[in-house]
Design a protein around this nucleic acid. Sequence first.
DNA 1: ATGAAAGCGCTAACAT
DNA 2: ATGTTAGCGCTTTCAT
Lengths: 336, 336
Amino acid sequence: MKHVTIRALARELNLSVSTISKALRDSYEISAETKQRVLALAATLNYTPNPYASSLRGKKSRTIGVVVPEVADSFFSLAINGIESVMKAMGYHVLICLTHEQFDNEKLILKEFQSGRVDGVLLSVSRETLSGEHIRDLAAQDVPVVFFDRVLDEVQAARIVTNDFESGYAATAHLVENGCREIVYLGISESLSISNRRMEGYRQALADHRLPFRTGNVVACTNDAAENYKTVKKMLQRKAPRPDGIVASVEKLTTTVYQACNDLRLRIPSDVKVVCFSNLEIATILHPSLTTITQPAFEMGRAAASLLLKAIKGNNVMSAEMVIPSVLIPRGSSTR
Amino acid sequence: MKHVTIRALARELNLSVSTISKALRDSYEISAETKQRVLALAATLNYTPNPYASSLRGKKSRTIGVVVPEVADSFFSLAINGIESVMKAMGYHVLICLTHEQFDNEKLILKEFQSGRVDGVLLSVSRETLSGEHIRDLAAQDVPVVFFDRVLDEVQAARIVTNDFESGYAATAHLVENGCREIVYLGISESLSISNRRMEGYRQALADHRLPFRTGNVVACTNDAAENYKTVKKMLQRKAPRPDGIVASVEKLTTTVYQACNDLRLRIPSDVKVVCFSNLEIATILHPSLTTITQPAFEMGRAAASLLLKAIKGNNVMSAEMVIPSVLIPRGSSTR
DNA sequence: ATGAAAGCGCTAACAT
DNA sequence: ATGTTAGCGCTTTCAT
């Protein structure tokens, strides 16, 4: 079967294409009766408008781009659910693009988005992203950009974030209050703003509790699980001072940390206490159950999507910033 | 800055639009020198072709649709990675659409895909999907459809699946060999083919080991975690015969099962042994570590994507079927 | 080697 | 209330 166009409907009903077009869009210019006939025929012939024709004509795609490092990650997949729930309700499509944490991919994707393929972009930058030229280039083409979670401070754009500093602080203070004196911070990347903000919170909490900050206690993890495992293991084997607490700033490190502790016969929480930034619901059934900083992933997705829609409608939201707090959920891995 | 079109390049270089178009596509008709000039200008002006214009013109979108029940699920998110790896290499875009396990959403999405928005579709049906009219309608518009993982037997289309029967069999046999006599099967849905095939494997394994099959031992779970929790709990409290083994056919049930056992003070594996269909890497650090049937999610995504590309190129792959085996990974939850 | 022109399907300004 | 027409940006056939 060939695809049914407006022209086909017009011929069939002895009407002009513009009449059909108007009828389909429920224009006041068209008589009720004609609308009826058009709609009826459209239904029987299974007419579906060609989105590319209207996009070309109208200069809007009713599609947004979502650029994320990864989809196999509970934070991002939940955020995508939030984004999708808003966009679906408003009749928008969501084009998900993965950077796999690589800056070059991110650059290519944003460049492609200058073509008019999307009406706006939601972006969570890769761990490699240091400069924002590619983002500004996109914005210069009047494609609104809203950051969510992982922002690039250098770029002035709307942003939906969580309270990373406070969360890093809370995680650390929680460990101190439970007796830790030598706390290790496992970061995601040295440049990523969220990781650094969480670390600043960690530093501040140490200071406020009169504990020394040691650069040796901050470890920048990589994107390679095997390598991270080695790093964490080495860290845990250190004597004098022996680490007795871990703040892991990314979900993927959960397995690494538990595995390393297991293999080294270190007991959680008696030997080492652990807090992890994570959205895994499975945290509850780990042994011991995992104390988490749980981010409002779905809500952040929703908020970012709503804000982007405002920007698409023409509102200037460039300086909008929304902070949705994360929550510390104390569980077995950190209490004495 | 306004979007740069082919016309702008043409004017700037005193050439015709067709010359520019040909130069950009590296046509043999154009002189090397002209190509140089065009490419150079395109680069400086940051020209990006309008994809909707070419789609409209060429009747192909270089976009495929991926229709899945959910993205916050390790099987689907890994499969998406596989799909994306292939499609990116071939210069295709991936439009991910979520059904949230609802048939109506699936219908709407496929209907929309009749518009020419995508060149082909990868589909994993919802748990509610019983009939395939909507899929046939799409195929009738010459949009190739490839099933992956969750197929609908009724529809003749290419399919990439895993060996669900054998996996169900292996999981059950494994439990029997480890001493279970009263094994419960937790299904996803009564209609879903994969769930039924896994259950058939379960039945066959029981039969081969001379164990009775009881309908009461088959539980169809819902999409509601709280409800599933109650169901599983009730099941585990049953006396005479008391269940001593569980085959959970879907990842989400892991938490449910562990939680219920915890709350009932049932010990895994001494009181109940558990095998779960799951791709969670975290299985290794559960306590006890979880025996899984691990599906080749990434590979299935890749295979499905490659097959769809063949179909888009015009090959008839309607009757293609590929089975990529899952593997049983025995861990602490099922061994005595 | 380059250019003119038609047309993909749709929308909207401008007739009638 | 309905119709005519131009044009969105691109590709491609058919000139030149």
